[in-house]
Simulated assay, not measured.
Amino acid sequence: MNRPHKSLRALWRTCIAAVCTVACVVGVAACGSQDSANGNVIKIGIKFDQPGLGFKKSGTYEGFDVDVAKYIARSMGYSEAQIVFKEAPSKQREAMLQNGDVDMILASYSITDERKQAVSFAGPYFVAGQDLMVRTDDHSINGPQDLNGKRLCSVTGSTSAVVVKEKFAKQVQLMEQPGYAECATALFSGIVDAVTTDDIILAGLASASRGRLRVVGKPFTQEYYGVGIKKGDTKLATEINDAIEDMIQDGSWNRAIEENTKGTNYEPDWKYNPPTPDEGE
């Protein structure tokens, strides 16, 4: 059984620790500022535990979702010091918007008809696809059709593993973990053969692995990432869509993708990317 390098185990322990130490949800730049005291801030929900998308690291925030959020906020007239990032766990996103805890959410938040019953969306700003991540030296898995008899890791409650099992691999052995950092650690260790979720999430994890993991690059679904906002706020949706279009046109969107997935040879599915944001819903 392959064992992960000591430094790599430390890297993933750091990732996992970041998930557990999220008590301070206010960005350091915004904490205690006059803008914050006066309420002149914009509150944005992101993930804190997804390298490459939304990741909290030593009181700062990084990832593609974060870069898009900052671009949108700037276009609306907010400085970076006026952005308050809050953790937006998947199960709490609709409630956070409905309760006014945040003004918008960018947290690998797929646009679905079911969610549109509770909240509105701007965007999409990215189209992800479910894919697989394997060890770099493993060439036995080239797509979901190769998973029969293999050990697969996904996050508890995720629909990703269900999709694979129902559509492609009846004999897959599923391990569920609380987060993708734990799945990546299991993959390093040889406990599992592959990890599955959206390709851009996997690309962020692969980038953090320093070349030890790779994304297979055969996406088999489409997930349209939107900016969640309060139900019916068409004015805000239009502002956000304008900002997304500007980000795509001036090259910032491409640069953000490259920066947050560097070292992985990852490329989005150009058949669907970059997307064209809809006006409102």
Score class of each variant (00 low, 15 high):
145 Q>H: 13
94 E>V: 12
148 N>F: 15
153 C>R: 09
267 E>P: 01
58 S>M: 13
95 A>Q: 15
139 H>V: 14
208 A>L: 13
154 S>V: 10
44 I>H: 00
63 G>R: 00
79 S>K: 09
278 D>E: 13
212 R>V: 04
129 G>F: 05
53 L>S: 08
279 E>F: 15
130 Q>T: 13
65 D>L: 04
110 S>A: 15
19 V>L: 08
127 V>D: 05
170 K>Q: 15
246 D>G: 08
26 V>R: 11
147 L>D: 06
42 I>P: 04
106 L>Y: 02
273 N>T: 00
159 T>M: 10
43 K>H: 09
50 Q>W: 13
105 I>K: 01
168 F>I: 09
74 R>W: 06
112 T>K: 03
237 A>D: 04
31 C>L: 12
85 F>H: 06
6 K>F: 15
183 C>N: 09
228 G>I: 02
233 D>G: 10
127 V>W: 00
176 E>S: 07
24 C>Q: 14
164 V>M: 11
209 S>P: 00
194 A>R: 00
219 P>S: 14
46 I>V: 15
155 V>L: 06
15 C>W: 14
12 W>D: 02
15 C>N: 08
27 G>Y: 03
16 I>Y: 03
42 I>C: 03
170 K>F: 11
202 L>N: 00
48 F>G: 03
153 C>K: 08
145 Q>P: 02
64 F>E: 06
86 K>L: 13
12 W>P: 05
167 K>M: 07
255 R>T: 15
112 T>P: 02
34 Q>T: 13
126 F>S: 07
257 I>S: 03
163 V>Q: 12
93 R>G: 05
29 A>Y: 12
260 N>A: 02
123 G>C: 01
262 K>P: 02
83 I>V: 13
56 K>Y: 01
218 K>S: 07
48 F>Y: 05
30 A>F: 03
11 L>K: 08
166 E>S: 14
9 R>S: 07
196 T>A: 07
245 E>V: 09
254 N>W: 09
135 R>K: 14
133 M>V: 02
144 P>H: 05
16 I>N: 04
156 T>R: 13
160 S>H: 03
79 S>M: 03
111 I>K: 06
229 I>V: 10
56 K>L: 06
189 S>D: 11
168 F>L: 10
178 P>I: 04
218 K>E: 06
84 V>P: 01
134 V>P: 01
65 D>F: 03
